[in-house]
């Protein structure tokens, strides 16, 4: 109960001055009464006395509840602890032309483009994750939203199927990430947020873009997983490039930058379709951790509760009114 008073409040406290009207039912006199020559000869009856008291009390409560409701009483626990299961995953898929190429380690029979491998694995991933909300953004020169963050698996799978058309254009990673992060804006944080970047190359980000991305990541509290599909002759993320050839390896710099984001970040270097599957399994395990977080809860407006209580009091008053004797006659 003390908790209640601690967290409750009044929107228009000056209206509480009207609470004194609750005294009126106790003061009011002179309602219709049947005359009787002598009360001395009437027995004292406790029930009747209490009926009268309850009647006045109901009138008083009726007034006060309405005043409280009018003054906008609310109750709000400032901070609530919440536990979220499942993740909110925005898949950011690279559709640049280079995705049509093969992996670094060619499979024994046939050739699987990086895109095909990524698509297959992502489809499996979408099928497996039941509790997650999944959205998808693809990007090449500019980002395209293909499926908003939601529980609709079919839309995501259809979007993945649509990537069959083959990639084109450049790799505009920053804009893709930015669009994906935008979809977290204004959503309640009920699960860990994961941005799953599937890409085969990097791009140079100028410092302004870097700052913006950093701010957005921290603000949305999203962690970043980068599945780096290494090209046949591409550089590894872990090996620093030779002196003087830094510009040729934007992936390395991007990896370094992601490391400084201040949010959980992990990169998976995948040289083969098998490695992609391993990386996805890893991610699925990681993001299933329950998320415990605190949230400022909105106020609950208690006016309706008090109106309801007033209504109940009114019903009680009316019921008592119905029992009133209209005519002093034996039935």
């Amino acid at each position: 109960m003390s908790d209640f008073f601690h967290h409750s409040g009044i929107e228009y406290p000056w209206l509480l001055l009207l609470l004194f009207m609750g005294l009126f039912p106790w003061l009011v006199r002179g309602h219709a009464a049947f005359p009787h020559p002598s009360m001395m000869s009437l027995p004292k009856d406790t029930l009747s006395v209490w009926v009268e008291r309850v009647w006045r009390l109901l009138g008083s409560l009726f007034t006060m509840f309405i005043v409280l409701a009018l003054s906008g009483i609310y109750w709000g626990e400032p901070v609530v602890e919440k536990v979220g299961h499942g993740a909110h995953i925005m898949m950011v898929l690279d559709r640049s032309a280079s995705m049509n190429d093969d992996f670094a380690d060619k499979p024994a029979q046939g050739s699987a483009s990086k895109m095909a491998a990524a698509r297959r694995v992502l489809q499996q991933f979408v099928d497996k994750s039941r509790e997650d909300l999944i959205g998808m953004v693809t990007f090449s020169t500019s980002p395209i939203l293909v499926a908003p963050l939601g529980g609709d698996r079919e839309a995501v799978k259809a979007a993945l199927k649509a990537t069959d058309a083959g990639g084109m254009g450049f790799t505009a990673i920053a804009r893709g990430l930015g669009l994906a992060l935008d979809y977290y804006e204004g959503k309640p944080m009920t699960g860990s947020r994961v941005v799953l970047l599937v890409s085969d190359g990097g791009a140079h980000l100028d410092s302004k873009t870097q700052d913006m991305l950093r701010t957005m990541f921290i603000r949305q509290g999203a962690s970043l997983y980068w599945i780096f599909l290494r090209s046949a002759n591409g550089a590894s993320l872990s090996a620093p490039p030779e002196e003087g050839r830094e510009d040729a390896y934007p992936e390395y710099h991007l990896h370094q930058f992601f490391g400084t984001l201040g949010v959980p970040y992990k990169a998976y270097e995948a040289e083969s379709p098998l490695a992609v599957e391993d990386a996805m399994a890893d991610i699925a395990r990681l993001k299933n951790q329950p998320v415990r977080y605190f949230e400022t809860a909105p106020r609950h407006n208690l006016a309706s509760v008090f109106y309801l209580l007033a209504l109940l009091c009114g019903c009680g008053l009316f019921a008592l009114h119905l029992t009133e004797v209209k005519q002093w006659r034996a039935a």
Partner: peptide
């Protein structure tokens, strides 16, 4: 009406005229 011809059920307020 003082004591015999009274209603069997109901809530009444009674005023002593004296």
């Amino acid at each position: 009406a003082e004591y015999q011809d009274i209603p069997n059920w109901g809530w009444a307020r009674v005023r002593d005229i004296e």
